[in-house]
Write a protein that binds this DNA or RNA. Sequence first.
DNA 1: GTTCATTTGTACGTATGTATA
DNA 2: GTATACATACGTACAAATGAA
Lengths: 245, 245
Amino acid sequence: MTATRTDPRYLQVAHTLRQEIVDGIYPVGSQLPTEHELCERFSVSRYTVREALRRLREDNLITSKPRAGTLVVPRTTSGSYAQDVMSIDDLMSFATGARFVIQASRMMTIDADLAQRTGLPTGTEWLAVGGYRQAEDAAFPVCFTEYYINREFAAVGRILHRHNGPVFPLIEDMFGRNIVEVHQEITAVLMRTDLAARLDVDPGTAALEVRRTYTTSDDEVAQVTISTHPASRYRYSMTLRRVRG
Amino acid sequence: MTATRTDPRYLQVAHTLRQEIVDGIYPVGSQLPTEHELCERFSVSRYTVREALRRLREDNLITSKPRAGTLVVPRTTSGSYAQDVMSIDDLMSFATGARFVIQASRMMTIDADLAQRTGLPTGTEWLAVGGYRQAEDAAFPVCFTEYYINREFAAVGRILHRHNGPVFPLIEDMFGRNIVEVHQEITAVLMRTDLAARLDVDPGTAALEVRRTYTTSDDEVAQVTISTHPASRYRYSMTLRRVRG
DNA sequence: GTTCATTTGTACGTATGTATA
DNA sequence: GTATACATACGTACAAATGAA
């Protein structure tokens, strides 16, 4: 958008700086002038400069750190792939009508072993819920799932038993937090004997272990989920589309 | 995150208001107190109140309009996730300096068994290339990879041996085609005996099989890749970020 | 329809805190 | 430890938009 006469000052400043970054006057990796210098250059107050820089930060054009100044960062857009929400639903793999049968639910302190499995800090307390996910008409569960829920959001545990589908929307609705990032790790494991019996597969067969970490806009881990799927019943599938860079 | 003594004031105010919105003290559709009233209630300046409200706006909990005030809005379930190019690179799992050592390369007709594994039509001809991917200094390969390349693009086979990294950019560069879609399926399998020896793991251990299908803008399958990773050496990792929508 | 008062948006100046080179 | 640059915070003022008299 071109800066018009009616644009607020901070948008005009943001527009000018953005153009200069794109034009290479401030190349990637270089320092932007200090806020004070920008105030002088544009003859505006620090408030206006900071509002302008905030816009550029929101667009991931710059990062700022005390004392270090403001840095122009590389653009990550070109030739990227995007995955839309349908693929995510696919990823969630919650078949319609699949019920979650809770087997155990309690507050738990992360020990060294669990820290390894979950990536959570040792000694912290989390609501641990374990159970099996089962389709309405199926003879056997499709997977075993462990939830580790931040104690701040432990209240969702009260309604888990009468809830189907992903759990993190519950956290979003009950606490007004947004899950902005889902990190996912997939590994191949051998089926544990205790799970094998309950899932009705042989111990020592292959299984897919999917660990998801849900992070809020405050950079706080809201929930970690670990699902163990018998290889014979699960295939992780997704489609990535290239989007305009 | 619970408001701590060290949190800035605007975060404390934001946290309190967020909780009160969630608790229904300010239900969806209701007006939040005016900024002036919030200043008095929390004994902070308007700057602090506005920073707090900005956070709530960024999380789509409220909207503000001049004169109309600040409104608590219903949570929108919308919002897709996107995955950026960094995560894709991660997904490609091409360690710097990892070489591809070709073991076999020949034109091949898809039989019933291969059709099952690759998803390609029986009876069609493809350039099949098999090999191991190995880091410079590693004693053992990180994975075994099979490429099935559309015969139309079989010319890339000539330069595969002196190429590192993903193969599909070669197709894009050599033939001016664009890969617009990558479909990916991940399954857990048991390590095949013939691969186990070469990868230096025990047969019957867990392995991650990643199959990728690369499709051009003409809806033509350019390439199918099947990689078999020993579970002990590979962890499929990706991050999805929710984007405004 | 006009005017007015109210509420958010933009903008200035100043001061202090905090992280870091 | 110090100086610097961004982060937070206060107070003030006026503009713009809009709901109501």
